[in-house]
Every structure is written in C-alpha cells, then in structure tokens.
C-alpha cells in the first residue's frame, strides 16, 4: 500500500498541494483526475522522491522510500526519459544493468506486443512509439506499484487503444497502479478508484463501480458535478 498523509507542497508562495491524503492498494487501478495539470504530476514526483514536500508523510508498504525500493515501485513520466541516441535495446540493457527486478522475458513480450524494433534509435521514433518505449521500460520491471503520468496525452488513437489494453492485461496484474489523466472518457471502465483533485486538495475519492451501483452515476457525471457545481 502506498499511503500519503497530509502531504503539503509549495512552489514559492503558491500552495500546490494542500494536505493530500490517500492510499493506493495492490491489485487496484487508481486514477488521479484534475482539470488543471497542477498538482497531479507533483504528487507522483513527491511519491518517487523527485521533489521535496513541505509537510506530511509518504510511505510504501509502511516504509519511507529508499533507493532500494525503486526496484519495487516504478514511475513512467509522460515523456521519454531514456537517452535520445540510445536504441530501444540499449535502453533495455541500461535498465537490466541496474534493476534487480528487470524481467528480460517480459520485456521481450512487451516489445512484441507494442511491435517495437529493438534496433531503432529513440530519437527516430514517432511520438506514439516513444510513449510505448517509455511504458516498456517501466512495465518490464517486476514491481509492486506502477505510477503513470498522463499515459494517453498527445498520442494517436491506435496507440491509445494499445495502451488501454495494457490496463486489462497481465502487465498490471496484482500490481497497484496509479495514473493521472485529464481525459477519463476512454478508461473509466478500467478504473477501481477515482481521486478528484482541485487546487491542491482532494474533492472526492470514490470507487467507480460503487458509484455506478449506488448512485447510477458515471465518473464523468461526478466530475461534472464537482467541477461545474
């Protein structure tokens, strides 16, 4: 379980996160939703210790994050983070050099699934294929938790469909998944938990299926109420 307790963060005088608390469970797909980009990515960065927080605690299975835990929790940002002059294969080899949890077989499967060519250089790839490489480098790790920042932004519809398939595949099986998005439409049927953010606070946190069952509302319905109301 990833647990955030009263997390606060400021950029200069501007409060970006104003007491955020939530949990991410293994075997669940959770989604951070917010209309304005501010805050969502910061939360992921904070969980990964890529930006300091002012107050609050973040724990992974009860422990604060240590470098060793990067073998157990992976963050896939919304842009390519491997080196542009690397080939897909070199990017994978780099991961294999450092991560105990790099799974060569799984990596091969994902390369096949995404129809990537290992000898292609990253800088020559289309935006969609770069996004796929980015996913490949994260998903081939045998981790417990996966964080993904805007996995659907700025890519064509077919890539989007392929990436959507990942969420119902063995690639995320039994793992705790947290994604951020501002386009919920294509994926709302894939989600367990939805966390609605606005101006650094959590407006509402709910289970999508329970919401449909008890109130007959779709995730979009709830968002409309919260953000327009």
């Amino acid at each position: 379980m990833i647990e955030l307790k009263d997390v606060q963060k400021q950029f200069g005088r501007k409060k970006v996160l104003n007491g955020i608390s939530f949990t991410i469970e293994k075997g669940e797909i959770s989604c951070l939703v917010g209309v304005n980009g501010v805050g969502k990515t910061t939360i992921l960065n904070a969980i990964m210790n890529l930006t300091p927080i002012k107050k609050g605690t973040i724990t992974i299975d009860g422990e604060p994050l240590t470098p060793e835990l990067y073998n157990k929790i992976v963050f896939i940002p919304d842009a390519s983070i491997s080196l542009p002059h690397f080939t897909v294969q070199q990017s994978m080899d780099f991961m294999n050099d450092y991560y105990d949890t790099w799974n060569v077989k799984r990596a091969k499967d994902i390369v096949k699934f995404f129809r990537l060519n290992p000898s292609d250089k990253l800088r020559d790839l289309s935006k969609g294929n770069q996004a796929k490489v980015n996913l490949l480098l994260g998903l081939a790790l045998d981790v417990d938790y996966i964080l993904m920042d805007e996995p659907f932004s700025g890519i064509d519809i077919f890539t989007r469909e392929q990436i959507t398939e990942v969420f119902s595949s063995y690639l995320v099986e039994d793992r705790g998944v947290l994604i951020t998005t501002h386009e919920i439409n294509d994926i709302e049927h894939l989600l367990d938990k939805v966390i609605l953010l606005d101006e650094g606070t959590i407006y509402k946190e709910f289970n999508a299926e329970v919401m449909r069952e008890t109130e007959g509302k779709s995730v979009i319905d709830v968002m409309r109420e919260v953000y327009n109301g």
């Binding site: 890529l50 470098p67 940002p77 983070i81 080196l83 450092y98």
Partner: peptide, 17 residues
C-alpha cells in the same frame, strides 16, 4: 536540459544517489 529529462532515470536508479 537535454531533449529527454534523463534526470528522471538517474534519480530513480536503485542505487544511492
């Protein structure tokens, strides 16, 4: 500052920073 923010990868390596 590079074309890709490689700092992400480096800071998330499972080694002491």
């Amino acid at each position: 500052m590079g074309k890709n923010t490689f700092a992400y990868r480096l800071l998330m390596l499972p080694v002491p920073r």
